[in-house]
Design a protein around this nucleic acid. Structure first.
Lengths: 343, 343
DNA sequence: TTGTACGCGTTATCAA
DNA sequence: TTGATAACGCGTACAA
């Protein structure tokens, strides 16, 4: 109490009453005279009394705080998720404490530890790219600690996950390219440690197959880093070296798609006339590019909001993780723009 | 302790020792036998003991948590700031609790209240566009509560601010346009409630004056909303109605600049040949646009990091807000790209 | 080398 | 209608 924070005791002393009376008066308990209530509230106001949430937490073994562990805040998608989380948490009276793992397993683990030390009531997690072992989560889940995973869902039985329909989004994007007459579609894939990468690739594969197009393994190019430079380089290489030159690129993220646009432009190819391009995530900038980039929109804010609602419901015992639906899948929406519309 | 959190007492019972001995053993206090220490640590490990930070906070009147109040997480710039904040706070052993005001004064106030209730040790603030009265901050500052403002600095005497050199950044951008031969430069200004808007406009004005160009009031267009649509509309209108048609647009933010690009393109104007455009903030997407957008880069992550260092130093009494430098100004950097380079 | 007692701010329980 | 007491988990001054 670096500042002269008045406590219940201070008010009690001031009014020559006991602490318990003050506590009750402030909370409008029955059995306290209106006169006393009035006086207590008046003095509390005057002394600038503010309840100490820490003391409450200690007493109730309940902090009304949830933790959020996220790879990186600066990813647009994650920032929209946080926004949704913060919104719901706040409106239900919870604080949000935030930690980024920076895609490091070690930081992910230490973040959780710190948060647990701080007695968080539950945690929302999107795990790091480095995380291949989930013991630090399963241990907690086994103890009944509320965890909800979002976006990146681990292969843990019993874990609650909120994610978008990566498979369907990917399927739609690929089918769209096919419907626009593209036939030699390359997929820029993400790291195979992430389920979302695998699902997105699967959607791509099946869309091709359903449309009678054979999947060419050489057309699936993994971008482990996910940077603009990387995809630009890989796409340039693909354009130059693949025996059967691709006429479309479906990237598992928007950055990769921008790299593809640049590479194609450098190669003198017209978009969408000669090459079609679709990204995934529908970042803000997609509609600012030229050509405007088609992309699969993910409802980030909604994902954050839903995940938080579920977490809070579990915390407040309105929902039982044992019996509830384990996975909530949110719909994606293909935003068809200039980069892939020939007709 | 929803889960079987072991406490010091549990360990004490297990070993038939007193709680204080356990406490001391765990912290390697002198005057505890090595044998006891060993046993205590072993059992602590086995029982999965984790110190209760809440109890510590209560005892020490110190939470090792700082609050961050920000208008919106999804602004790229703010997300980079958060990243910097989180980085420094974490490395110095502090938690970060986050709240977005959504540009609402009421939420800003209630967020602070909640955070104070939670005994935060200090707070980092970038205030909302609605905030014109700063009583809720001054009251705290007067009590000696540590606050550091970043990006948006209020006109409060004694407040500590970390910001970028908006004036200079703006000056540089405008001077750059002039050096490229643009003469009729429009400024897309922000809401005048924000000091950054005023400073940016000032930089624009003075760059013109220093170069012998008269400031034309009709060339200063305020964009209160800051949306893409708004600036696109206003720029289109400017191109159509201003008697002396502008040949350049310097926007106080990148979104506005993108709107300008679109409006100019729709008007059939070639960029940068006929119109030059420069934005402010240097969002990720600037270099992905076509033409690539020139913009004034703000060191967001650095700003967050520096602001946090200062706040923690104040909290830890390494710095005294009364005697220290009140304002830290970080340098901007003009990123010259295609949208404004004629030569 | 270890134990006892107290306090951080709050509230539930029991007593008056 | 109000008060005294204990407890949440921990650290520490003091005692043994």
């Amino acid at each position: 109490m670096k500042l002269g924070q008045a406590t219940i005791k201070d008010i009690a002393r001031e009014l020559n009453l006991s602490a318990s009376t003050i506590s009750r008066a402030l909370k409008d308990y029955p059995g306290i005279s209106d006169e006393t209530k009035r006086k207590v509230k008046e003095v509390a106001e005057k002394m600038n009394y503010r309840p100490n949430a820490i003391a409450l937490s200690l007493r109730q073994s309940r902090s009304f705080t949830i933790g959020v562990i996220i790879p990186e805040v600066i990813h647009f998608f994650f920032s929209t998720v946080i926004s949704g989380i913060e919104e719901v948490a706040n409106s239900r009276g919870y604080n949000v404490i935030l930690s980024q793992s920076n895609e490091k397993l070690a930081r992910e683990i230490s973040s959780i530890e710190t948060m647990l030390s701080n007695q968080i009531d539950g945690v929302l997690v999107s795990y790091s790219k480095e995380t291949k072992n989930f013991d630090h989560f399963t241990k907690l889940l086994d103890q009944g600690f509320p965890i909800v995973f979002f976006d990146r869902a681990p292969a843990i039985p019993g874990a609650i996950n909120v994610m978008v329909d990566d498979y369907q989004g990917s399927f739609d994007a690929t089918a769209h390219l096919i419907s626009q007459g593209y036939k030699k579609i390359v997929h820029l894939a993400g790291p195979q440690t992430l389920k979302i990468s695998i699902d997105r690739e699967k959607g791509y594969r099946e869309a091709l197959e359903k449309n009678g197009i054979r999947v060419n393994p050489a057309y699936i190019i993994t971008c482990p880093l996910g940077t603009l430079e990387e995809s630009k380089e890989l796409v340039t290489e693909a354009l130059n070296t693949l025996p059967d030159r691709p006429d479309a690129f479906f990237s598992c993220n928007d950055i990769g798609a921008v790299g593809a646009i640049m590479a194609c432009r450098d190669a003198g190819l017209k978009i969408p006339l000669e090459v079609g391009i679709v990204g995934f995530s529908d970042w803000q900038f997609c509609s600012m590019l030229d050509p405007q980039l088609s992309s699969v929109a993910q409802p980030g804010s909604l994902m954050g909001a839903r995940a938080t609602e579920i977490l809070l419901d579990i915390i407040e015992k309105k929902l039982d993780p044992k019996t509830m639906e384990q996975t909530l899948i949110l719909e994606t929406k293909l935003m068809e723009r200039d980069s892939s519309k020939r007709f």
